[in-house]
Simulated assay, not measured.
Amino acid sequence: MTHHAVTPARLLPWAGPEGKPCYLLTDGSGRLSRAADIVEGVQLDMAAGLLAHLADALRDDEQVSAVQLRYLLARMGEALTDVCRIAESRGARLGVYTDFNADGDPDS
């Protein structure tokens, strides 16, 4: 009898139909896992780029309109959602407890 280690389902970095989370049951070595790794990398790079753009915009605050800032904040909100999904996925694969209450205390 062969025993295989149970691996947690991987939360993928994209949503499924109707915006629902997508999960992958894998050992981490397949094509879909590699595609998810690439998408995560792109999402993290985009978030870093938006942070750099925000720093530039705040430095030149007289030249930035309210419309431009609202647009940037909307994109940053999307990027933060992606980054949180990546953190949740990676934390789950590491066995890290990620369900915090509003106080940030995982024990209550």
Rank of each mutant, 00 (worst) to 15 (best):
M1W: 02
M1K: 04
T2M: 08
H3Y: 12
H3I: 12
H4A: 14
H4Q: 15
V6D: 10
V6W: 09
T7K: 15
A9M: 11
R10H: 05
R10V: 07
L11M: 07
P13H: 03
A15Q: 12
G16W: 06
P17D: 13
P17F: 15
P17L: 15
E18D: 13
K20S: 04
P21G: 07
C22I: 03
Y23K: 08
L24C: 10
L24V: 06
L24S: 14
L25P: 01
T26E: 05
T26W: 10
T26P: 09
T26A: 12
G28Y: 06
S29P: 05
S29C: 12
S29R: 15
G30A: 02
L32T: 12
L32G: 06
L32C: 08
S33E: 00
R34Q: 14
A35Y: 08
A35D: 12
D37K: 00
D37V: 00
D37S: 06
I38P: 06
I38M: 09
V39H: 03
E40D: 09
G41W: 00
V42C: 01
V42F: 06
V42K: 01
Q43I: 11
L44A: 15
L44K: 10
D45A: 15
D45Q: 10
M46T: 04
M46R: 07
M46E: 10
A47H: 04
A48T: 08
A48Y: 09
G49M: 06
L50C: 07
L51V: 08
A52R: 12
H53G: 07
H53Q: 13
L54V: 09
A55F: 02
A55E: 05
D56I: 06
D56H: 03
D56G: 03
A57P: 02
A57F: 09
L58E: 13
R59I: 02
R59N: 07
D61E: 04
D61G: 00
E62P: 00
V64E: 09
V64K: 04
V64M: 13
S65F: 03
S65G: 03
S65Q: 08
V67Y: 11
Q68W: 11
L69H: 11
R70F: 03
R70M: 11
R70E: 12
R70G: 07
R70D: 11
Y71M: 13
Y71R: 14
L72R: 14
L72D: 11
L73K: 13
L73P: 01
L73W: 12
L73F: 14
R75E: 14
M76K: 04
A79V: 07
L80A: 15
L80W: 07
T81W: 05
T81P: 02
D82E: 08
V83D: 02
R85S: 04
R85C: 03
I86N: 02
I86P: 00
I86E: 02
A87K: 06
E88W: 01
E88Y: 00
S89A: 15
G91R: 01
A92P: 01
L94F: 10
G95C: 07
T98R: 04
T98C: 09
T98I: 09
D99C: 01
N101G: 01
A102M: 07
G104R: 04
D105K: 01
P106G: 10
D107A: 13
D107Q: 04
D107S: 15
S108H: 14
